[in-house]
């Protein structure tokens, strides 16, 4: 399972900073600017994808603020599904072990809560996701910076990282279990692997596409390598970093379930496996619903942070 960013066409997007201004193409061949050819790199698709996610978030901001009925419209299908579910479970002869009623699912939740398990499962899963996400994000940022800023780094690391990214998450499970045992370390490692790649690809891509004209202007005004990084390059990639983090968080939840297949005794992924073994369809429904709700909630939280950051740096 690899995150499906590849839906975004590999459009070679001109840097967003000078949009609407005439590019200085007049003396292009003689001006010694970095060649456009670099844009056709492995990462061009990643950055266009990264920016577009940030873009929709900004656009949606207005829609959300101005229409209270966006909330209503968004609720139509979930409520409709709930009604269909109610009718299908109560008014048809589909047996409970195939389709539990909403009441039974809530009951399963209450039962788990009374045993003190529900909170434990949720907390351990959230903790694994957040820890793995944090580690993966840092690793992804570091690798992205190396590949995005250094040609040698890019040439050395891009092929191997591309290959590692292509390995399905479940393929790591047996090896991680043998090497790292069955407790928290292999689970968090797996989630970190999953979270690192979206950050890595978006950051590397964005750093490569920082407007070369801005970089040159910074150089002309006496900025050395490090000040240039902090004054021009890093602020320029903030939107991409943020959307990379958002993708990474979603990815972390995906990898969580794979991680909790590793001999676990707690967590929402464990609840899925355990319920399947015991034929507890009501608990399966509960686990899936919780995964959906938690994933959406953490994403919304990151979205709030994203809007604040984009207001400052976007």
């Amino acid at each position: 399972m690899s995150f499906d960013e590849r839906g975004g066409a590999p459009v070679s997007r001109p840097s967003s900073t000078t949009e609407g201004r005439e590019p200085a193409s007049r003396d292009l061949p003689s001006s010694g600017r970095p060649s456009e050819g670099r844009r056709a790199s492995l990462f061009s698709w990643a950055s266009s994808y990264g920016f577009s996610t940030a873009g929709t978030a900004v656009g949606a901001q207005h829609a959300r603020r101005f229409s209270a009925n966006a909330l209503l419209l968004g609720a139509v299908i979930p409520v409709g599904l709930l009604i269909v579910w109610l009718i299908a479970s109560e008014a048809t002869s589909i047996p409970d072990y195939l389709l539990p009623s909403p009441g039974q699912v809530i009951g399963a939740g209450v039962e788990l809560a009374n045993q003190g398990l529900l909170a434990t499962y949720i907390l351990i899963s959230v903790q694994r996701v957040l820890t793995g996400f944090a580690i993966g994000a840092v690793v992804g940022l570091a690798l992205g910076a190396i590949v995005g800023l250094s040609d040698v780094g890019s040439k050395m690391l891009s092929p191997i990282l591309g290959a590692i990214r292509a390995v399905p998450s479940l393929a790591w499970v047996p090896l991680l279990t043998i090497y790292l045992g069955i407790y928290e370390v292999p689970k968090i490692t797996l989630i970190a692997i999953g979270a690192a790649f979206p950050v890595f690809t978006t950051v590397a891509g964005a750093l490569r596409h920082v407007d070369p004209q801005l970089v040159e202007a910074g150089r002309a005004f006496g900025l050395g390598r490090l000040p240039l990084l902090t004054t021009v390059q890093l602020p320029a990639v903030v939107p991409a970093v943020v959307s990379g983090l958002r993708l990474a968080l979603a990815q972390a939840w995906l990898f969580l379930v794979a991680a909790e297949l590793i001999a676990s005794s707690m967590g929402l992924g464990f609840l899925l496996v355990d319920s399947q073994n015991n034929g507890r369809t009501d608990r399966l429904f509960l686990a899936i619903l919780l995964l959906g709700i938690l994933g959406k909630a953490t994403d919304a939280l990151v979205g709030v942070g994203e809007r604040a950051l984009l207001k400052r740096w976007g």
Binding site: R21, Q213, T231, A236, W313
Partner: peptide, 11 residues
């Protein structure tokens, strides 16, 4: 240098 494009840092 003042370039043909303003090249201001947008943020």
């Amino acid at each position: 240098v003042a370039f043909q494009e303003p090249r201001l840092l947008p943020w």
